[in-house]
């Protein structure tokens, strides 16, 4: 071990053997996958196990039980509410991870005229964004509310809303708090902190709806007992819309936070830079 660098034990075999093994591994993986897939049911087989267990019940009872014509929405927000809560929590955790990155690196806005925080200053872009952004945001809300009867729902609407927020950031410059230089058009919409508040409000609303169902005598996320009036299917429909709205807020806020993490300039704290060029690209 005297000559080997510390922490890296020498790999077995000569480089040539290793390269051959590496080159053979992936064709072997492909062949193995295809051989395994020959045992699967035929593509489009209506009698396959995936289509005969559980899903007939979703297809036949979803509309009557939850009032949602779009079965995907019914399964997403009602039957598998726990699962969706977990997914929303993962997305929220990604946003929190971004906060850790921002805090560890010492976030600060770019100086005027540098980085992405400088508005492009193009009249064409400004005018196009003024027209497009309201349409995008409104369409996102439409996708959320109309998700019961057409493709759409909280996830898609949230991503669209987040895209609208990103579009404003791209063209009109920074939306983070305490901006030192005023862009040509004042930045509109939630900044980094506002986006975080959106994401937190979303996840809290999700858990809150679940706990409210418990408070009125049901199980966690079993909305049938909520005192919203009307027949059970209608109550479930309203609660499902609430769940979708919570997912919408979480996704929209997190998407904006993700973009900010990539685009906000950093002052490196901690260890000094290794020798090399000093650009801050």
């Amino acid at each position: 071990m005297g000559t080997a660098p510390p922490g890296r034990p020498p790999a077995p075999g000569t480089p040539r053997v290793r390269r051959l093994l590496g080159a053979a591994a992936f064709p072997a993986l492909f062949v193995g996958l295809v051989v395994g897939m020959t045992q699967l049911p035929e593509f489009g087989d209506p009698a396959s196990p995936a289509s005969t267990h559980l899903s007939p019940r979703f297809i036949e009872d979803a509309a009557a039980e939850t009032g949602a014509a779009n079965m995907v929405t019914a399964v997403l927000a009602d039957y598998r509410g726990y699962d969706t809560l977990g997914e929303a929590a993962v997305i929220f955790a990604a946003g929190l991870g971004c906060l850790v990155i921002l805090a560890a690196a010492g976030a600060r806005p770019d100086p005027p005229g540098a980085g992405m925080s400088h508005p492009f200053g193009s009249v064409v872009l400004d005018a196009a964004t003024r027209i497009l952004v309201p349409v995008v945001l409104l369409f996102a809300v439409y996708v959320l509310i109309h998700g019961h009867v057409s493709p759409g729902g909280g996830f898609q609407g949230g991503v669209l809303f987040g895209s609208g927020l990103i579009m404003m950031r791209l063209v009109w410059g920074p939306a983070h708090e305490g901006r030192a230089h005023q862009p040509a058009v004042p930045a509109f919409g939630p900044g980094l902190r506002g986006s975080l508040v959106l994401a937190c409000a979303g996840i809290l609303a999700y858990v809150g709806i679940g706990l409210a169902a418990m408070a009125f005598g049901g199980e966690f996320l079993n909305y049938g007992t909520l005192p919203l009036g009307g027949d059970p299917a209608h109550v479930r429909e309203l609660a499902t819309l609430g769940i979708e709205a919570a997912v919408f807020l979480t996704v929209a806020g997190t998407v904006a936070v993700l973009f900010d993490t990539i685009s906000i300039g950093m002052r490196e704290s901690g260890a000094p830079l290794p020798p090399g060029d000093g650009d801050s690209a």
Binding site: A50, S51, L54, S55, F58, I59, A62, M71, V72, A74, V75, L76, R80, D83, T84, E87, V90, I91, A94, G95, G97, C98, I101, A104, A105, G153, F155, G158, V159, V251, T254, V255, L258, F259, T261, I262, M266
Partner: peptide
């Protein structure tokens, strides 16, 4: 079958948020 559609819909959005987190890390 609506069940795989539901699972994959959420998987796509989770994948973009993990990708964004990874990109933030890579920039650092």
């Amino acid at each position: 079958n609506p069940l795989p559609h539901t699972l994959m819909l959420t998987a796509i959005v989770v994948s973009v948020s993990t990708t964004g987190l990874a990109l933030g890390l890579l920039v650092r």
